[in-house]
Design a binder for these strands. Structure first.
Lengths: 351, 351
DNA sequence: CTGAAAGCGCTTACAG
DNA sequence: CTGAAAGCGCTTACAG
């Protein structure tokens, strides 16, 4: 059996290069950074020496001297949520162009893990931070001092006076709800995220306002915003509240969970239960039926949030009020008029 | 309008703490790292000083002295591919436990971006690297020297003699193909990934062997392994090859794209075209019909790959041969016997 | 246009 | 059990 172990000969430094080129270390530094005047001859000599000795710059040395690392943290709750994966991709593209590294950190939506990860990030002396706070986050404005540029994305947090980028959740959720009301639905279940998350609060507000304006009764349940959680939740609400003919999904995983739960109960979408999701996913476009959904502009949110961080890094003033990027309702085929089934109890259709 | 700019007062260092506690800097260091003998009294004094002056360790200083950063890179092609998102999550969990930071890098499946990102990672003097190489990667074993511990995940690369973690792709793909053959299908389209990717090569081999053993004709097409790419590809192959009654999807996004393409063509799954996917996704379990799929053990692959890096970091020997984690076929409802439609041209069903 | 000196924050030998 | 000294690799003033 062939085996390998971690190797590692001492690597070349600016000094090695300097010695090889017959110049000083800071001349090497000047050539590499492209700053200050260097004669063309010296420049060529140095570059030749760089390849000759196989020199690779050491970011750690540079960062120590510069007091800041050209790195921005992105602290989210779960990378397997496609919304955050797309957010990471959009943010990374902006930063890469500017020569900044993006460091991804997972909080698992846990308050202590969040603090721990933030402490880790802080130890690298990053230039900035993009943060989607954990549900019961204990972070304060003081905790975010020292990150220089800090910006909230998607979720906000009471008492954190930091710029933020969000969607027009109340309006978008209101529109989604009215789509169902207009189709004739009166008993519409809203399957939301964690009760105290700002995203839940804002989306619930839009839902309640629309439902109450139509003289209907709000039917909400809270979940951990995962598919399995939503699957259990929708089944429970169907059993405890008779006559539900429509549902609203908090995010893409929750919308998945609702469809799974409906299937568990032997209910069809949209014939038995109409559905509107919040946050699009590729499969929703060709699912039978294609799912009507509020498209969250995740790329735009990511780019804007990244730009705010860059502006703050550059010392430009940034508005402290939330920056709102509007979502749009994509009308597909998962909403139809309620059927007569709505009058029978769901348990009668179970096997 | 309230405005904020990036702040940042000079932060406390070990010296600040030392002065406050009336001890030396390296005593502070000893207390913080928990190494060597320190009297209980000194220890208490130092810890009090740490909170008093608001000290936060600087990883940059530590890394410079230690020559290695407690950081491992994970270089993948696209974080919005759920397989890689889950891989990141699994790997991160293992490393977090060991106090290692995971740094996510995107290559966009581009050879130059891959080199660029690797160079960036190298500048941080990381302790290791987990790599899913780009399709036309130009990396050599030499390029990976200096990363100490390097391990390939999911994809391998000819000429790279580095430990790797893969699935039993030929066997699993063979089994998936035989499921379709056994149901009576003879014209089975395999919608694969990029032609030169090791994953494509291995899965195609399993497909071809099974098809040829059954005396049928292989029908393969290559894609960029994204949903939109697969959507175009399946439509094209349906038009150029008459009588196709079944399809095999290379990964989750490709399986999505196949379903979208079938819908475009007015074809139903499974009545008109049976389907088997490679790599599971949550929505596949309750899609109508639930999709039969080869489940890739992504968490197990991630944990194993992470463990190999840890072993190499610890100087333990690691087998250079590929480490194979077996996938399993999940039989759901997207495979049925071919119908008579198979005798009509797909264009006749278009509107 | 180029170089000698100092220091970023930390930890590793080496002395007491 | 504790401290004075040196140095990790780089870049920033400061001189020539």
């Amino acid at each position: 059996m062939a085996t390998l172990t971690g190797g590692g000969e001492p690597s070349a430094t600016v000094k090695t290069v300097a010695a090889h080129a017959g110049v000083s270390a800071q001349t090497v530094s000047r050539v590499l950074r492209g700053t200050g005047y260097v004669s063309e001859e010296t420049r060529t000599k140095v570059l030749a020496a760089v390849t000759a000795v196989g020199y690779h710059p050491n970011a750690v040395g540079r960062s120590l001297r510069a007091a800041r690392t050209p790195m921005v943290g992105l602290l989210i709750t779960d990378i397997t949520n496609p919304f955050y994966a797309s957010l990471h991709k959009a943010v990374e593209a902006v930063f890469r162009e500017r020569g900044l590294t993006l460091m991804l950190l997972n909080s698992d939506d846990d308050r202590d893990t969040e603090r721990q990860q933030l402490e880790l990030l802080r130890s690298y002396r990053p230039s900035g931070l993009l943060l989607a706070p954990a549900v019961h986050s204990s972070l304060t404005t003081d905790d975010l001092a020292g990150f220089g540029a800090a910006v909230l994305v998607s979720r906000t947090l009471r008492g954190l006076s930091v710029p933020s980028v969000v969607t027009n959740e109340p309006e978008a959720m209101g529109e989604a709800t009215r789509t169902l009301l207009d189709a004739g639905h009166r008993r519409i279940a809203a399957v939301l995220g964690p009760q105290d998350a700002s995203t839940t609060v804002r989306r619930e507000a839009g839902y309640r306002e629309a439902v109450l304006a139509a003289g209907a009764e709000p039917l909400v349940c809270y979940t951990d915003q995962t598919g399995p959680g939503a699957r259990t939740a929708i089944r429970h609400v169907l059993h405890t509240h008779a006559g539900i003919t429509a549902a609203l999904g908090f995010n893409a995983p929750v919308t998945e969970g609702i469809l799974a739960g409906l299937r568990d109960e032997g209910l069809r979408c949209p014939q038995d239960v109409s559905l509107v999701g919040f946050t699009d996913a590729p499969w929703m476009a060709f699912y039978p039926p294609p799912i009507t959904v509020v498209r969250q502009p995740v790329e735009a949110m990511g780019r804007l949030a990244a730009q705010l961080v860059l502006d703050m890094v550059d010392g430009k003033p940034v508005a402290a009020e939330p920056h709102v990027v509007p979502g749009t309702l994509l009308r597909r085929e998962s909403v139809v008029a309620p059927s007569s089934r709505s009058l029978t109890s769901p348990s009668s259709t179970q096997r």
